[in-house]
Design a protein around this nucleic acid. Structure first.
Length: 105
DNA sequence: CCGTTGACCCTTC
DNA sequence: AGAAGGGCCAACG
């Protein structure tokens, strides 16, 4: 059994294109439902190549204005992935939250 | 080696 | 309905 952050790396790396996940969801899948903070720190300290831009808040809001380099960059990346954005500046988790209905029928 | 901090989320006042 | 605090685990100084 690997450490929690190590587990998170695997989960985030397996998020399919067009889907997004939340820190709490990853923490839950990693084995610590309350350790959502560790997930954030893990992604922050995570190696390059990890689609950390697919990880959002529980409400669909972006993590913070300075995450990975800029919220606008993250918005562009998500739109490029096919993630619809709401006029509020949030992501429609109902459409893109992972695991989605296609992955979990 | 020990103390503090941190891309969060949930419960209670 | 809005605000505040607690809890988790690992990495940095």
């Amino acid at each position: 059994m690997s450490t929690l952050p190590q587990r998170v790396y695997q989960l985030v790396a397996q998020i399919p294109k067009g889907n997004v996940a939340t820190y709490g969801q990853l923490a839950l899948l990693a084995g610590s439902p309350r350790a959502s903070r560790i997930v954030g720190a893990a992604l922050y300290r995570a190696p390059t190549g990890l689609p950390c831009h697919r990880v959002l808040y529980r409400d669909g809001t972006l993590c913070c204005d300075q995450a990975f380099g800029g919220k606008e960059i993250q918005r562009q990346l998500l739109e490029a992935e096919g993630i619809p954005f709401l006029p509020d500046g949030r992501v429609d988790l109902k459409r893109c939250l992972w695991p989605g209905p296609k992955e979990q029928p």
